[in-house]
Design a protein around this nucleic acid. Structure first.
Length: 399
DNA sequence: TCTCTCACG
DNA sequence: ACGTACGTGAGAGAC
């Protein structure tokens, strides 16, 4: 609580001028996409309304005779739905561009400057410790744990997160593959533990096993698929989900998963054991003993029960990673106080910590941050943890 | 206030 | 036959 209070109190500096300029740019481009949509549709409507968009696409234009509806009877117009129609209909690209740019503008670029505290000139998030059921933190008002990074236009926004003054830089430090390391450690799967102990690229190593080729023979496509399986495993994904995710047949997806389970037998065992434990005790727990209660684990309803089973698999993994980074944060906070550093820890984003670092202290705090993160919580089966650190004039550069 | 959509790990 | 990958917060529209 003390650590989080200090971070909230400190806040982070935002480049208001940069965001104001970017807002105008996004507005121009969103408008262009919007006009293009109206021209192609032959009608003007509120493109920001999923209801109206659905009616235009599927009633008026009839671009998909098999259009799906949501549970309330509206046409579904989510990104996944639209992407499947993109190859045949040019209008879809413009809709997606409009969605992306207006989302970025309203949620981040226009909203963040309004959140700057008048007294401090900085943005102060609030962290909640008792919201996420897995033990993760959550961030609100504003949420600084979902600042864009995945798209080129979204990523730009990170340039607006800057050091407090000329004497400081931003440092970002993040755990590498922490959840997969925890899977390896908790399950004790020999192949996966070995991959981490020898410092291998885990997705490459997985691909070699799953597709039964030498590690040097792994293609980009094989690695991409293996990466998807690795993430899916953490969440209890099945063949349907993997197929959907990779755009492959369910048969191929099933083969990949079956092979995965064969190559990493103890991961399958971990999943079975964890579900069984939950059925007996009504909860699962993290490495530090945080419990998640699963009242539906013995439900007679398949869908409800399956959901609880996926929670049982995922929660100890996600929650143990949360335990670990919290311990690291406490260690770092104490070390910084002990050395009377001017540098401050500012943000936590689940597997990442962001710091305002005084230029004179950068080389001193680097190893302290990395050491605290790497040794916060020793994993079972001697699985090593690893963290990476970057320095920059803004959050994007530091990442 | 609910629904849909979409931003992050 | 069913539904299908976990955890969040927030904006816009609709009611």
């Amino acid at each position: 609580m003390k650590v989080l209070t200090a971070m909230e109190f400190e806040g982070i500096r935002i480049d208001e001028g940069f965001l104001n300029d970017y807002s105008k740019e996004l507005e121009k481009e969103a408008k262009a996409a919007e006009e293009s949509v109206y021209a192609q549709a032959g009608v003007r409507f509120n493109l920001a309304s999923p209801k109206q968009l659905g009616e235009v696409l599927f009633d008026k234009m009839q671009i998909d005779p098999k259009a799906k509806k949501t549970k309330t009877g509206q046409y579904a117009t989510g990104e996944d739905v639209l992407l499947k129609l993109a190859s045949k209909n040019k209008i879809v690209d413009d809709i997606l561009v409009f969605r992306e740019f207006t989302k970025l503008k309203s949620t981040y670029v226009d909203a963040l400057p309004l959140m700057i505290n008048i007294k401090t000139g900085r943005v102060h998030t609030s962290y909640a410790q008792a919201v996420a059921v897995t033990g993760r933190l959550s961030s609100n008002n504003p949420n600084l744990q979902n600042i864009p990074i995945r798209t080129e236009r979204g990523r730009e926004i990170r340039k607006a997160f800057i050091p407090r003054d000329k004497d400081h830089v931003l440092i970002s430090a993040d755990y590498s593959q922490i959840e997969l390391r925890i899977v390896a450690a908790i399950s004790g799967d020999e192949n996966m533990c070995e991959a981490f102990k020898t410092g291998k690229d885990i997705h490459n190593a997985t691909a070699a096993k799953v597709f039964n080729v030498a590690e040097k023979e792994v293609t980009k496509e094989m690695r991409y698929k293996a990466k998807s399986v690795n993430f899916g495993i953490i969440y209890g994904q099945g063949a349907f989900g993997l197929a959907e995710n990779l755009g492959i047949s369910r048969t191929e997806a099933k083969e990949i998963i079956d092979n995965y389970k064969k190559q990493f037998p103890n991961i399958q065992k971990y999943m079975d054991d964890t579900i069984h434990f939950a059925q007996e005790h009504g909860y699962v727990q993290t490495l530090m003993g945080r419990k998640r209660w699963l009242r539906d684990i013995n439900s007679a309803n398949f869908t409800v029960r399956a959901f609880a089973e996926r929670n049982a698999i995922n929660s100890p993994i996600q929650g143990s990673a949360a335990d670990m980074i919290k311990l690291a944060m406490i260690k770092i906070h104490r070390e910084f106080n002990k050395h009377n550093f001017k540098s401050k820890m500012l943000l936590q984003v689940h597997d990442e910590l962001v710091f305002d670092a005084h230029r004179s202290e950068v080389e001193k705090i680097k190893p302290i941050i990395l050491d605290c993160m790497q040794h916060a919580l020793a994993l079972p089966n001697d699985v090593p943890t690893d963290a990476e650190l970057g320095v920059g004039e803004n959050w994007l550069e530091a990442h």
